[in-house]
Design a protein around this nucleic acid. Structure first.
Lengths: 236, 236
DNA sequence: CGGAACTTTGACACGTCTCAAATGCCGTGG
DNA sequence: CCACGGCATTTGAGACGTGTCAAAGTTCCG
């Protein structure tokens, strides 16, 4: 009975202490569980597209996603990633505007959908929830600003080094100590704003310098200290 | 009496319908007026510095500001501007972290300071106020993401064209139809992430193409349509 | 097994940065 | 009020990083 009750919902959306939902009262928590619905998606599936209307939050139960904007000649610019426990789509819902990014699954995934009206109700009822959302957006805003500075001032190699560190931090390691994410060279290029060939060449350089190891799409950081120095523009 | 009462406060912080304070009740409005204090600053003054602690919001009563992060070799990266009616510093207060940017006056200015505790009180009491802040941060976040895409994918000339349009939109025109802001070539370079000399050369090109007019630091857009096409990567 | 997508390599062109030097502008102090 | 010093602007030459294009090799997946 309890099993069935919770099967609609998602523990990451409501239960984790790290989540923005941690301040909810038990009634609010129940409301959330009742109103949310889960779906599964396959690699390559697009949950929503830039410019479309979205009506609620998406909470990642499992899987990984890339979040991107579309630029000149449909060239994608990856703005962020999402992993288990992350929330996306809130910006557009909260400001009642069309989605400003596209959300695409990087692997098979499960995602909960939380209707916008639930969110607005929670904001009205629970100031701590509002504050949690405010903090979340402020944090993302700072990340975005740091990235603007980096992309404007650093070389491609420095940016690549930085992104490798970010990916390791964000997606952690698999059982062989490789960064636990599969991205194409093109994906990586579209994070740091460069050409696919440049990514390939610089990854090759880093490999020759014995700072990283490559196995297909998998990347392992061998010398984190030096990678950091490169990312900080201290070592060339 | 009334004059004196309001002289502490600032009509832009509390009275304008466009402000985030428009949803305040009359008591909340009074609280805001009682607790805020105004100061004057001179061109070049720094109100707060990246990394320092700030304890409240800054609301611009008059004047103009640049908001920047400091990068490699102390090279500044301008993230945003502030003008009359704008609020800054809220990110750091709301997330209780050190300031992530520096705020510097571009001309003599007046600024109101609103203590953080007032803000938090308003958030607790007034969900509409929370929602206004959330919308504000979401909007800024989207701007930041658009700019990441642009800086990553566009050429210097395209970015410069885009920034000229942004500056005209944001600072409007003076009596001679020039954009109403004085920025050094270096400032402009540090918005779009390029070298000062590149800005000078490309401004010169645009002038020769009769798309803009230059008079010292002042810039006038002569052919907005073509500038837009350049900014959109349609015209080279 | 075949085809499509992805990766790799090379050659080359071009945009942009760097450095250097000259000139112009402006506020400060004599 | 003028002269000075410092800062901003401008211009040129050259180097370098990165993007582009083309072609071949590889991996992935139906």
């Amino acid at each position: 009975m309890i099993e069935e009750y919770y099967s609609k919902g998602c523990q990451y959306c409501s239960g984790l202490s790290s989540s923005i939902f941690k301040s909810l009262s038990s009634e609010q928590y129940d409301l959330l569980n009742r109103k949310q619905t889960c779906n599964t998606y396959k690699k390559g599936d697009i949950l929503y597209r830039e410019g479309s209307r979205i009506t609620g939050f998406y909470c990642v139960k499992s899987g990984k996603f890339k979040i991107y904007k579309t630029g000149i000649d449909y060239k994608p610019q990856i703005i962020a990633f999402a992993r288990t426990g992350d929330i996306t789509g809130y910006r557009s819902v909260l400001s009642n505007e069309p989605a400003c990014t596209t959300l695409e699954a990087l692997e098979d995934s499960e995602v909960c959908f939380i209707p916008g009206e639930v969110i607005f109700k929670l904001i009205r009822e629970n100031p701590d929830f509002s504050l949690a959302i405010i903090k979340l957006t402020c944090k993302e805003l700072d990340h975005a600003n740091v990235f603007i500075k980096d992309i404007a001032q650093k070389t491609v190699k420095e940016r690549l080094a930085e992104i490798l560190l970010m990916l390791e931090e964000y997606f952690a390691l698999d059982s062989d100590d490789f960064i636990n994410i599969n991205l194409t060279r093109e994906d990586i290029a579209s994070i740091i704003g460069t050409a696919t060939e440049s990514v390939i060449r610089i990854l090759g350089d880093l490999k020759n310098e014995r700072l990283i190891e490559l196995k297909g799409k998998k990347i392992k950081i061998l010398d984190k200290k030096k990678i950091k120095l490169i990312a900080e523009s201290i070592l060339k």
